[in-house]
Amino acid sequence: MKVFKTSGVCAREIRFKINDKNIIEKVSFIGGCNGNQSAISALAEGQTVKEVANKLAGIECRNGTSCPDQLSKALKKLA
């Protein structure tokens, strides 16, 4: 499982697992709003890294970022 320390959002970190075909198998957020993050995880799991990273990039909540945007950054950096 890879771990990404977030910045500018309520969640402290994002943990995710990607298989050898670049499919996201698991996403979990530590801290923050459970409902929103559960929805993001459910939508991302089973999708390709590229597809999810591109769709979520640039979504803003506050501080010029959001939990979806942070997941995009995590996938681009660590996947």
Rank of each mutant, 00 (worst) to 15 (best):
M1P: 05
M1G: 09
M1D: 02
K2I: 10
F4Q: 05
T6V: 04
T6L: 05
T6K: 02
S7T: 12
S7E: 13
V9S: 05
V9G: 02
V9D: 03
R12I: 09
E13Y: 08
E13P: 03
I14L: 04
R15F: 06
R15C: 15
F16H: 03
F16D: 05
F16C: 02
F16W: 03
K17N: 09
K17Q: 10
N19G: 08
N19Y: 05
N19A: 03
D20Y: 08
K21S: 15
K21V: 08
N22E: 12
I23S: 01
E25D: 07
V27S: 11
S28L: 11
S28Q: 12
F29W: 02
I30F: 10
I30S: 09
I30K: 13
I30D: 12
G31F: 10
G31R: 08
G32E: 14
G32R: 14
N34F: 15
G35V: 02
G35Q: 05
N36R: 10
Q37M: 15
Q37K: 15
S38V: 14
I40F: 06
S41P: 09
A42M: 13
A42G: 12
A42C: 11
L43M: 13
A44F: 00
A44H: 01
E45D: 07
Q47M: 15
Q47W: 05
T48A: 04
V49L: 09
V49D: 02
V49W: 01
K50V: 11
K50R: 12
K50Q: 14
V52P: 00
A53F: 07
A53V: 06
N54V: 06
K55E: 15
K55C: 14
K55L: 13
L56F: 13
L56K: 01
L56W: 00
A57K: 12
A57W: 06
A57V: 07
E60W: 10
E60S: 14
C61V: 08
C61F: 15
R62T: 11
G64T: 08
G64R: 08
S66V: 07
C67M: 10
C67H: 06
P68C: 03
P68W: 00
P68I: 00
D69R: 01
D69P: 01
D69A: 13
Q70M: 10
Q70W: 07
Q70D: 02
L71S: 01
L71W: 01
S72G: 10
S72C: 06
S72M: 08
K73I: 12
K73A: 12
K73G: 07
A74G: 02
A74V: 01
L75E: 00
L75S: 00
L75A: 03
K76W: 10
K77F: 04
K77A: 15
A79L: 03
A79I: 06
A79S: 12
